[in-house]
Design a protein around this nucleic acid. Structure first.
Length: 203
DNA sequence: CATGGGATTGACT
DNA sequence: GTCAATCCCATGC
């Protein structure tokens, strides 16, 4: 069964399938990051289609798991298919999906969404009226969807944050942004031409 | 126990 | 383009 959202020529692109299962996350983090573009995140009445992700892996210093297992990183070293939500710059909550086998330490950062559902609620939470700018950044999308640190370590398979299969997307690859270490790795994945991608745009 | 550094954003020059 | 807000947590004494 496939539930459809919206109408007209957008129907196929916005098609929404079932929740992504354990086996989707239990794969190399680069594959998961690429394949999550086009999937849908839902939290309560609000939902958006993923248009930008980044991969993080314990083997490189930009990843929180680089320091090994600590109270903060234990979620990253836990089983795949779990949400890792942490506070950034003391202000924002950032949403990740834990990937790869248990004890590996890898996750995909969800960086931007195309708003699909509950847009009025997103506007209220974000305090803005326009639709563009609602979810075009990792801190903005968690605010719009009402995701916070209490969602850390909750299951994406049957917890409050739903990750739903979507239609395949045309993906472009670039360097991760907003980091100071391992900046050369091309581990950022964006839907080609999508206006809801955060800046700076991939080249 | 004190310190320092962010996987960001919005306001401002 | 610059810059401050703000808090969790890893690290080191």
């Amino acid at each position: 069964m496939v539930e459809r959202v919206g109408g007209g020529p957008e129907v196929e692109r916005l098609a929404v399938g079932p929740r992504l299962a354990y086996g989707f996350y239990d794969r190399p983090v680069l594959d998961v990051a690429r394949d999550l573009v086009g999937a849908v995140v839902r939290h309560g009445e609000t939902a958006g289609r993923i248009v930008e992700t980044e991969a993080y892996h314990h083997s490189e210093p930009a990843c929180h798991a680089y320091v090994g297992v600590t109270p903060r990183t234990s979620v990253l070293y836990g089983p795949p298919g779990v949400a890792y939500v942490y506070r950034s710059y003391g202000i924002h909550a950032l949403l990740n999906a834990v990937c790869e086998h248990e004890d590996v330490g890898a996750a995909v950062l969800i960086r931007a969404l195309e708003p699909i559902d509950g847009i009025d609620e997103m506007r209220a939470r974000r305090g803005i009226d326009r639709v563009d700018g609602l979810c075009n950044g990792p801190g903005k999308l968690t605010q719009a969807l009402g995701i916070d640190l209490e969602d850390n370590d909750t299951s994406l398979l049957d917890g409050p944050i739903e990750m739903l299969a979507g239609a395949p997307a045309d993906v472009v690859v670039g360097r991760r942004i907003g980091i100071t270490k391992a900046v050369e790795l091309p581990w950022r994945f964006c839907e080609a031409g999508n206006p809801h991608v955060s800046r700076p745009w991939p080249s």
